[in-house]
Write a protein that binds this DNA or RNA. Structure first.
Lengths: 224, 224
DNA sequence: ACACGGCGAGAGCAGTGCTCTTGACTCTGA
DNA sequence: TCAGAGTCAAGAGCACTGCTCTCGCCGTGT
């Protein structure tokens, strides 16, 4: 039996990798994505730059890992914020607020995932599932409590979205759902990126209003 | 009389400046903002890197100029797309589509102004007016044709937005207007930044739906 | 006619991502 | 037990970046 043999190596490797990622995230938070430098990460972790390449293939791969971690972090927050026992609109608002709070706490990471893609860098496919996590929380609320509007649309809606997204959602709510998801990140993004300077004063209140408007659009019942 | 004297220098200067900006925009479009390099701009324009510093103070200032030009470009498109004689919702939709079209044609420039701010770079104040240009087109349509909803809100709205933004808009429409403006760029941004991959198939149709929803929210009369 | 000032060129500094080679260290299988 | 395989940190080096400073050229305004 190979008591620890390979294990000790694997463990050391995992720890070093963790240290690199942590330091990278620290620098990302402090100086932004563009200023993230493999060399300075290496310096801070206490090794020479070339050694880092044993753990992460390239700067881009490092970014990819940070992106996935960030998606997961928002998603987790969103999931945690939702109390399935609470009234629908309260769940809804809690999730919107949670996303905003996370974004304010981690603006650089938010920019990394919802801002312009780092140029010359195409987000690889493995980020897609992580990206959907937050959206699924919204969809879950809608699926459970949303009721489609009375006025039937013009039925052209069927081809607008991809098939099989938004499982368990009434078709008439699919487009409003995607619109609401967009609105959430659009609003938070505008705040984070400074577009609301000289425009919106009370951003939290504003987000609540927008969330409420969106809640109506996806057919959540009015507040008690 | 100083026939051409100062004029000839000034002209040469203006031409060189133009050439630098044009080449910079070309490289921005081709490789993205982060890959924009003063040295390579200089190389392409045919001078040495240090010389371009006579025309632009820094890479950041170059970016600032490109940002302002980009804001103006979308704004101009939006203004041109609006036919004040057309039915309100048609005007509205035309503006939304125009913004989307411009964004699809100039994704890098769109990313520059509506994506994450280039890290380590704070957009200076002089970009703010240019940024508002597109918004004003939307506001104009709302101001002329929007009617506030019947259900009076809870009046807390007064403090949410800054004073004096959105001139000539009924207070009850102010928040929906900002929300609509946000929704427009949120939706276009999500498309440009690839967030709709595997989600939205027909993006133009989707934008139309969202625009229509937003039009209702800001009280534009229903289509004839 | 002349001094000033704008201009382009070049060298140079400090930093970057990334590659390749070298030497040491550790774990493993016979 | 011990040689060989595999892994690792380190260093040098390449090509690139933003930016500064100094040097001469030459048009310009007085």
């Amino acid at each position: 039996m190979r008591s620890v043999p390979n294990g000790v190596r694997a463990r050391a490797r995992a720890e070093t990798t963790r240290a690199i990622l942590d330091e990278a995230r620290r620098q990302l938070a402090e100086h932004g994505a563009a200023a993230l430098s493999l060399r300075s990460v290496a310096r801070e972790v206490g090794m020479v730059s070339s050694a880092v390449y044993r753990y992460v293939a390239s700067r881009d791969e490092l970014l990819t890992r940070l992106i996935i971690e960030a998606y997961d972090a928002v998603g987790e927050r969103a999931e945690a914020a939702r109390d399935p026992a609470a009234p629908p609109r309260e769940q809804w608002r809690a999730v919107w607020r949670a996303v905003r709070t996370w974004a304010l706490e981690h603006p650089s990471e938010y920019a990394l995932i919802y801002g312009s893609p780092v140029p010359g860098y195409a987000a690889p496919a493995e980020t897609i599932p992580a990206a959907g996590r937050t959206a699924l929380v919204l969809v879950a609320i809608i699926a459970e409590h949303g009721t489609p509007p009375d006025d039937d649309g013009d039925d052209g809606d069927a081809d607008v979205l991809e098939d099989d997204v938004l499982p368990g959602l009434p078709p008439a709510l699919a487009i409003p759902a995607v619109a609401a998801w967009t609105q959430l990140f659009g609003t938070v993004g505008f705040e984070i990126f400074g577009q609301y300077q000289n425009v919106v004063r009370d951003r939290e209140a504003f987000l609540d209003r927008v969330a409420d408007e969106a809640a109506t659009a996806v057919g959540l019942p009015a507040e008690a």
